[in-house]
Simulated scan of single mutants.
Amino acid sequence: MENISLKGIVDLHVHSHPDIRERAYTDFELLEAGIKAGAKAIVIKTHHGTTMDRAYLANEYNKKVYNGSNDFVMYGGITLNYAVGGLNPVAVETALKLGAKIVWLPTIHAANQMEKFGKTGGINCVEAGKPVPVLTEIFSLIKEYDAVLATGHLSPEEIFIVVDHAKKMGLNKILINHPEFWVVGMSNEDQERLVKEYGVYLERCYAQPMGGGIYKSNLEDNYELIKKIGCENIIVNTDGGQVENPNWELAFAEYMQYLFDRGITKEELEIMTIKNPAKLLNIGK
């Protein structure tokens, strides 16, 4: 059986320390794992603020320790939860000026997630069937800086409304975060419709949290969706970093090997793990 290489891969969604919950790697340890695996880039994510500043320091560490012996780069972004004031254009503009590549809409503080966990409140991106007005300002900034709009933990209904508004504003780099995650809960049929109508990218992750430290494998469902709609609008990510799951590089390797062993070609894997995510980050192949 042929083993699939991680050479050149790009992961747009990995969690690392510092964080409020335990993570498998620090930023520096994750960088070292990426270099060792031969990856091209990793985007570090937090639910509690920004990561482009952390990515900058990790890249400086890379220069000093490895003296230009690799081409690995760490990137970051901003997540619009309460830690940054929610839907805060000032925070978004500041992050983008500092190099943020992805703007994630609310995740743990999204009204949809709060409701799914039996709580009230949360941040609404849609009210009365329309995007809240401040999204227009935020989307303008994302477009100006050619960054990626990621849909966070919104509901399927909210995602369709937000994506429609973003596309009408001229945003083309739109990433639907782990639509298979039960909090998002988007059917494969709706994912297929989003791709056909709006040309978005679907982020399909290694596993999804079910609560209580339990994770459910997404590999079979990911494979079925890729076979159904093709690879051109799929991005293979891990959403890794949890101590309950394999370390980031092991999860990514298992994911790619699973797909390859079931007939997904090397060329298709390259599209989903290198070409598509690199296009969103403007870093080429």
Score class of each variant (00 low, 15 high):
residue 2 E to A: 15
residue 8 G to D: 11
residue 10 V to N: 00
residue 11 D to C: 11
residue 11 D to H: 12
residue 12 L to S: 06
residue 15 H to S: 10
residue 18 P to N: 07
residue 18 P to I: 06
residue 21 R to D: 15
residue 25 Y to K: 08
residue 28 F to P: 00
residue 28 F to E: 14
residue 31 L to K: 01
residue 35 I to P: 07
residue 35 I to M: 12
residue 36 K to T: 09
residue 39 A to Y: 05
residue 43 V to W: 07
residue 45 K to W: 06
residue 53 D to V: 12
residue 57 L to C: 05
residue 60 E to A: 13
residue 61 Y to H: 13
residue 65 V to D: 08
residue 68 G to I: 05
residue 86 G to Y: 00
residue 86 G to L: 00
residue 88 N to R: 01
residue 99 G to R: 04
residue 112 N to T: 14
residue 120 T to M: 11
residue 126 V to F: 06
residue 129 G to H: 08
residue 131 P to M: 06
residue 136 T to E: 15
residue 140 S to E: 14
residue 144 E to V: 09
residue 145 Y to G: 12
residue 147 A to M: 07
residue 150 A to L: 04
residue 152 G to Y: 00
residue 153 H to D: 03
residue 154 L to M: 06
residue 155 S to K: 03
residue 156 P to F: 00
residue 166 A to L: 02
residue 167 K to V: 13
residue 170 G to Y: 10
residue 171 L to A: 01
residue 172 N to W: 04
residue 186 M to F: 12
residue 189 E to C: 06
residue 191 Q to S: 14
residue 192 E to F: 13
residue 195 V to I: 11
residue 195 V to C: 07
residue 202 L to E: 05
residue 207 A to G: 06
residue 209 P to A: 14
residue 217 S to C: 09
residue 218 N to Y: 12
residue 222 N to M: 10
residue 224 E to G: 00
residue 227 K to R: 15
residue 228 K to W: 03
residue 231 C to V: 10
residue 242 Q to N: 13
residue 243 V to Q: 04
residue 247 N to C: 11
residue 253 A to R: 13
residue 255 Y to T: 05
residue 256 M to C: 09
residue 258 Y to N: 00
residue 259 L to I: 09
residue 270 E to Y: 12
residue 277 P to V: 11
residue 278 A to W: 06
residue 280 L to K: 01
residue 281 L to M: 10
